[in-house]
Design a binder for these strands. Structure first.
Lengths: 155, 155
DNA sequence: GTAATTGCAAAGCTTTTGCAATTTA
DNA sequence: TAAATTGCAAAAGCTTTGCAATTAC
């Protein structure tokens, strides 16, 4: 179950003066195992499969550390808790306001926008922390132009 | 202080079976007065200038109503509370992870991306609810490639 | 041994909600 | 008057934090 990505990350933690603890390794493994996005709570659940006593606060603290080191990132997908994923999985999220579906798109789709924004404003778009909303193909097909619909999928 | 946009919105509320109350008008006026984005708390503050007893819960409920009617929208700009603005001011926010600066860009900048995503996935990007992050021109100039920097502007 | 990390419990902050009192139409 | 809206206070949901106990180095 140990992954070279996990080892590399532990290495970076240590290189940064941090300590290589069991809990941190477990959080990393949970992130690797759950290739997609997961909430802190979900990750804690995964971690507890191996480390029954792992505390949610520790998961939060570890995620914060991993983000500081550029190993993991979080995104706010509409409402609800943040979603976490490994930095390597660079993709972006289109969240449907109506049904809550999440469509992922590769980073390269943003290249023209990135260039345009850089040229216009000097702003460098972060390749990780995107989250766009709108309406997914299915909801558009069902009711092409509803403004309110049954309301966005909140909470 | 009364604005034709306020009147039009009150009209829509009434047309939708809602009631034209003092509080709702006050929230609308606060949104108009504060052309840019503001949090619910900030709007409540503005409202209280005229309506000292206006309750925060009422502001939240009014904003929810306005959003349902397509009159106002909220965005999650990184961390902290949601930011609200009138629907007419269609613009998007680039939030600097390092210093927290917010750079606004017009909606048209997204047109090519919008077309591309529609073609690829059928997803219709919402013109309002965007929020992108990255690093602003100033921060990039200061330290062209810091990963951690002094850390993103949290909370 | 010492400094970093963890667990626990409590608090913080934003937002929502139940219900009685008030206001609008 | 009837139905919608408000105020209040409490709760909910996510996240952070203080501090004593534990663990890594």
């Amino acid at each position: 179950m140990s992954d070279e990505r996990v080892e590399a990350a532990m290495e970076r933690i240590r290189a940064n003066g941090g300590r290589a603890t069991v809990d941190r390794r477990a959080v990393l493994e949970a992130l690797v195992r759950n290739a997609d996005h997961a909430t802190a709570e979900e990750l804690a659940e995964l971690v507890r499969a191996e480390l029954p006593d792992c505390n949610l606060a520790t998961v939060y603290r570890t995620l914060e550390l991993l983000e500081r080191l550029g190993i993991a990132f979080h995104v706010h997908l509409g409402h609800g808790p943040s979603q976490w994923h490994l930095a390597e999985a660079v993709h972006h999220h289109l969240v449907c306001d109506e049904c809550g579906a999440v469509v992922e798109v590769g980073d390269h789709v943003f290249d023209p926008l990135r260039r345009r924004i850089l040229a216009d404003t000097g702003f460098v778009l972060d390749p990780h922390h995107f989250s766009l909303s709108g309406r997914c193909a299915r909801c558009v097909a069902v009711s092409p132009s509803s403004t309110s619909g049954s309301g966005p999928a909140r909470r």
